[in-house]
Design a protein around this nucleic acid. Structure first.
Lengths: 256, 256
DNA sequence: CATAGTGTTTCACTAAATGAAACGTTGTTT
DNA sequence: AAACAACGTTTCATTTAGTGAAACACTATG
């Protein structure tokens, strides 16, 4: 068992486990339902929700179910760095999404993963279900491969990640993966055809600062059924429009 | 002492007390500094930060100080209702702020207080320090008086609030306050001259839906030194431009 | 009326959290 | 170079809070 100093506060762990259950797909939970989901006793769950409600972190609706409260919106707005970036990039990526007709993501490398700062959804019914603020594997996504390929810490990061198999198309062989990164640098874009999720295709290009260092990626994702390899130059062209606008805004940033 | 069922989880209370210390004014804290601020023992504070850091709710910078982490940004983005409204209203209120040359706020009534959904800062160095997601008193602010005046629950809310003195200009007499609300309805805007904060002036107008029910307020705030009563019609005109754009977006909403 | 499901409460018991003191590191002052 | 001040971090004995089973009260459904 870990020493005292590294023992985590269990009540806080439980509280955020409960909060994590609230997603865009399921915005409200009953007490017992949430207890089943988290594995916590229903009395414990009730007390956690009660405390969180008293702080406006969740609130109880008129149907007795609980949903996220305004306090998280406030706290989320204090994480200023991402809020500012999200705000500034809304229009460029929205325009790209309209033109490319797929979901567009703005992403950076963070903690050896791909972190999504902003998103503009496709208007199609069939679209990826990725959230702003979420992480995805670096080795199995277009954005991840692109950011890793151009990173100045590529070897260090490679030592710290596992090329785990996410789908049968995920590149798990180290040599093959390095070749993929070299190819990505050469062609100045990355492609992920079902490497992260079956039926899903993504294409990512770099966003550079004044010194030509990559600070983020912009990508488009959609189902394989709507994807044509002959359309790649067109996709890149549209993504570049968005990238250019974002680069103007962040040309003097070292990173996002 | 309260019964078992209403006893709040102290660890969660402490965790969010710690998180509340991180503001736009002070984004990073050392362990002892934060312990002094919150009144918690430095060991306790260290453990709280350690747990929060393990969840990416805070993170420790290279200078050993702690700041808010990406997880709050993610959780904040799940409070979809405010995020959507904030996103849709960014341009209108930004444009109003540019033209009016003061800080502009979009606000609603929530829990007998004024809740700020969105904000566009003035470019002046001297400007109000209000945060998105924060609450202000309903009786001592322009937005609050406006939203209360037009509310269909005015009397009920008045029974539940105290006309506490915030500055010497705050209206604390019930009769005088009711007259102020009547005047607000008649002139279709509200003014707060140093009622909430000395030296601060705010003017608010309504945002209406298709049924002409007020769903929010848009206001401008700045220092008394830059305020001229003869400019009120001009301020209202500019605010109305923003209100009109927002009304187009939310004309079918019953409330925000 | 019976049943099933919910949120909420109680109480005896269990586990977690706490704080004082000390440690190790870094930067500053003498 | 040594002493000092401030920091983050760790330890251990002690204190406090948190927990879960069982029961209650309510609502909806058949």
């Amino acid at each position: 068992m870990s020493s005292d100093n590294k023992t985590l506060n269990q009540s806080i762990i439980k509280a955020f486990t409960v909060l994590d259950a609230f997603t865009n797909d399921k915005k409200e939970w009953g007490v017992r339902e949430l207890a089943n989901k988290t594995g916590y006793n229903k009395s414990t769950t009730y007390r956690l929700l009660n405390t969180l409600a008293s702080l406006n972190i969740v609130h109880q609706n008129s149907n007795e179910k609980y949903s996220l409260g305004s306090k998280l919106f406030e706290l989320g707005n204090r994480v200023a760095i991402y809020k500012t970036i999200a705000k500034s990039t809304n229009n460029p990526i929205k325009n790209v999404a309209l033109e490319i007709q797929e979901t567009v993501l703005l992403s950076i490398l963070k903690e050896h993963q791909v972190f999504h700062i902003n998103k503009a959804d496709s208007l199609h019914g069939l679209k990826i279900n990725t959230s702003i603020g979420s992480y995805q594997p670096i080795h199995a996504t277009a954005s991840g491969k692109l950011l890793l390929a151009f990173s100045d810490k590529t070897d260090e990061i490679l030592k710290n990640i596992e090329l785990t198999k996410v789908t049968q198309h995920t590149i798990t062989n180290a040599k093959a993966f390095k070749k993929e990164l070299t190819k990505t640098v050469n062609q100045d874009y990355a492609l992920d055809i079902e490497e992260f999720e079956l039926g899903l295709v993504s294409i990512a290009i770099p966003i550079r600062n004044r010194q030509q260092n990559i600070i983020a990626s912009i990508s488009a994702s959609g189902p394989l059924s709507r994807f044509r390899t002959e359309n790649i130059p067109n996709y890149i062209s549209i993504l570049k429009k968005g990238a250019t606008l974002i680069e103007e805004e962040f040309k003097d940033f070292d990173s996002l």
